[in-house]
């Protein structure tokens, strides 16, 4: 009798360990997929930039500084190695692009150009995609981390050596700054 109870407990325990292990593996792969998705969107942005420069450079020849800055930032972002270095370079590129779009506002014939409008839409969308893929990555990585930490699954995670995923954070100090809000109503 006792033997049977022990066997039953062992079987239930074994099934539970398998269940936890499989769900952790599935989450881990979702996290990896989420991370790759960010890269896909970053690549999309790199591919769009030469097109954009080509379209606007005729009209914006007096803004050569900004244009070269964007190109340089793009090339640096492409050749960047390592997660943190990549993050820094991509943020510089975001800043340069934002500056370029602010300047486009000064050129009415550029703003009314359909090709520029389309490219601008594609780049806005790409910026959003990068943001949303990072958001999705953080969500899924948080879920993965939590499911490793909660008791009793943390025992299984420890035995099989699952590691915590790093969350994506804002690396640029300027971006982290809280926008000032003026509450004095006029």
């Amino acid at each position: 009798m006792l033997l049977w109870i022990i066997i039953a407990v062992a079987v239930v325990l074994g099934l539970w360990v398998i269940g936890v292990f499989n769900s952790l593996i599935s989450l881990k792969n979702q996290v990896l997929n989420g991370w790759n998705q960010i890269d896909v969107q970053l690549k999309r942005r790199h591919d769009l930039i030469p097109n954009l420069i080509e379209t606007v450079k005729g009209v914006m020849k007096f803004e050569q500084d900004t244009l070269t800055k964007v190109i340089e930032a793009r090339n640096k972002a492409i050749s960047a190695e390592g997660v943190s270095e990549k993050g820094v370079q991509e943020n510089i590129l975001s800043g340069a692009l934002r500056q370029l779009f602010a300047l486009v506002e000064n050129y009415p014939n550029l703003k009314s150009n359909e090709n520029v409008a389309k490219l601008q839409e594609e780049l806005i969308s790409t910026e959003n995609r990068i943001g949303f893929s990072r958001q999705f990555y953080n969500d899924i990585a948080t879920k993965f981390n939590i499911s490793q930490q909660v008791f009793p699954a943390n025992v299984v995670a420890g035995i099989f050596g699952f590691k915590q995923s790093e969350l994506f954070q804002i690396t640029d100090a300027a971006e982290r700054e809280v926008p000032k809000v003026d509450l004095n109503l006029k």
Partner: peptide
Amino acid sequence: DLKQRQWQNVVEEMSIASG
């Protein structure tokens, strides 16, 4: 059409956000 392209982009963004 720019507006329809934009709608497609927005849907793709949401598909990324929701996975």
